[in-house]
């Protein structure tokens, strides 16, 4: 259940170009959040909260890690907050990734700032002794983060659009090297998700979507996406952000 919580910033560091890792302390969210859920963060002076995915959780320490890129005034403001400060958060928000017990091999496909939710998911899957293969796409070398951490979960391909690091191209360009898998999970920019779901058409998979949000709790209809069921739409904030790749129309 979503509640309004204060989270204390324990640590902050720059892990790649304009990309911040922030460790937040909160008992309720760290104990209840699932991979794929997000935090809806209040920033002083802003009309709307900012949705940021949960990238990692340490239940014992009671901490939640977020990774975000500074792209506008809100993320810039959040990046300026120092450890010790408390932030007001609604969470855990949305529905996380469904994990299927029988799966033995899973493929994670993250693009840019869609990589963060893949990490806590991969960690959770690896703990269940599933073989985790990851493909992480970034624009350029300076944007790459968490390569080491994903390597610890399983074989990891790094792809950069300009070829400055790892393989050159898009995440889909390494699909032929992956081999067989039971299910894929993906988060990233919409064009990437479109090609991923097209190329893996027929494979069971879950994708995490982004949209500009108002309420973040399912009340305002800001974040809808057409779906293939009778209702004809889903709300990304409350029905998602994670969807079965086959149930929504991208």
């Amino acid at each position: 259940m979503i509640t309004k919580e204060n989270m204390r910033i324990l640590a902050k560091s720059m892990i790649a170009l304009d990309t911040i890792e922030m460790v937040l302390e909160n008992k309720y969210i760290s104990q209840t959040a699932l991979p794929g859920q997000f935090l809806h963060i209040f920033l002083e002076g802003k009309t709307l909260r900012r949705p940021i995915s949960i990238a990692d959780i340490d239940k014992e320490m009671g901490t939640v890690t977020i990774l975000f890129k500074v792209v506008g005034s809100g993320t810039k403001q959040l990046a300026s907050y120092e450890p010790g400060r408390e932030i007001d958060v609604l969470g855990p928000s949305g529905n996380g990734f469904q994990i299927t017990e029988e799966d033995s091999t899973v493929l994670l496909i993250g693009g840019g700032i869609g990589v963060p939710p893949m990490y806590y998911l991969g960690k959770t899957l690896a703990k269940q002794n599933k073989k985790v293969i990851s493909i992480l796409g970034f624009q350029t070398k300076a944007n790459v983060f968490y390569e080491e951490k994903f390597n610890q979960l399983g074989y990891t391909f790094i792809v950069t659009n300009d070829g400055s690091y790892g393989e050159k191209g898009f995440v889909t360009d390494v699909f032929h090297k992956v081999g067989d898998f039971d299910r894929y999970y993906s988060c990233g920019p919409l064009p990437m998700l479109k090609t991923v779901t097209n190329e893996l058409n027929g494979k069971p998979g879950f994708i995490s979507l982004e949209e500009r949000m108002g309420c973040g709790v399912g009340a305002c209809f800001a974040c809808v996406i057409p779906s293939k069921d009778d209702k004809g739409y889903k709300k990304i904030c409350s029905d998602g952000p994670v969807f079965d790749a086959r149930e929504v129309s991208l």
Binding site: T47, E211, R212, A222, G232, Y233
Partner: peptide, 17 residues
Amino acid sequence: FGNGTPRVAETTAGMLN
């Protein structure tokens, strides 16, 4: 069904919907 997305934007001291 309503309009296409994006349906909201933040502004100084407010928002558009």
